[in-house]
Design a protein around this nucleic acid. Sequence first.
DNA 1: CAGTATCCTTAGGGATACTG
DNA 2: CAGTATCCCTAAGGATACTG
Lengths: 145, 145
Amino acid sequence: MQQEMQDQEFNIKQDPYNYMLRVLFNRWKPYIIRAISFDQDAGRPTYYSAFFKQLPITQKVLSQNLKELEQDGLIERHVLPENLRVEYHLTEYGSTLLPILDAVYDWGWHDMKKKDIPIDPLGEMWHGYRKQDASRMHQPFKNKQ
Amino acid sequence: MQQEMQDQEFNIKQDPYNYMLRVLFNRWKPYIIRAISFDQDAGRPTYYSAFFKQLPITQKVLSQNLKELEQDGLIERHVLPENLRVEYHLTEYGSTLLPILDAVYDWGWHDMKKKDIPIDPLGEMWHGYRKQDASRMHQPFKNKQ
DNA sequence: CAGTATCCTTAGGGATACTG
DNA sequence: CAGTATCCCTAAGGATACTG
């Protein structure tokens, strides 16, 4: 019985850390979730087009990530037929990730400060590390100027 | 003065989330830190060769990650000249990441359970989700059978 | 407006061999 | 024993064009 146990190796594909790399810790998901959460706090939904006003992400990558986040139960997608817009909301389940994201951001923020690495001010606003300035926070990245 | 603020875009390279993707959330670092922490709890150091008994990682990738972790102040490297071995320890600073890693693992573990995704038992032992079995936990991955 | 579809680039990691 | 050095490969993301 010990033998049948021993012929197993660690399978990273079935481990929660690796799983979380797919579910949450990729290049854009923390920012997408943060953007939705930020709008939610302000009492408004997040439209598909709104992400581009905050994040230099392409449509392909955004759509991919939104689809995965929806399939994983972290966000909800609502189509408004009258004007062809689509709203995104954080689910309650998805919001259970916010404390983790906060802890990660905070650790990183302090480490960067400690090491004198410059920190992006927009991200700081989203996280309350800098006074919020609406005129900057929704300034489009594209069609700038 | 508002103008000079507005002509800035979000620079992901200077944001803590992205920074943490390099510092901590890559394929192997959570496991490396976990392995050292596990040995530390058991009162012993972690030798370079010991990682290969737990993780299917290559020497190149392990060395790379250990070097970064050391440069980032998360682990310490001690050479024992008498027998040419090298020990690795978690620094106090590095151990401040453990609560975050635990929270990430736990969220992922519960999510996988909820969705009936099989979870690797070795990782569960390292995290106390399964009774520890020393005979399995240090079974080499390489030269198996 | 909110997406697909295609093509391309690159960074991270894997395999293997070699070294002080 | 504890690493480098090379070469290779894939998966994630970027650029651009098109669509209901």
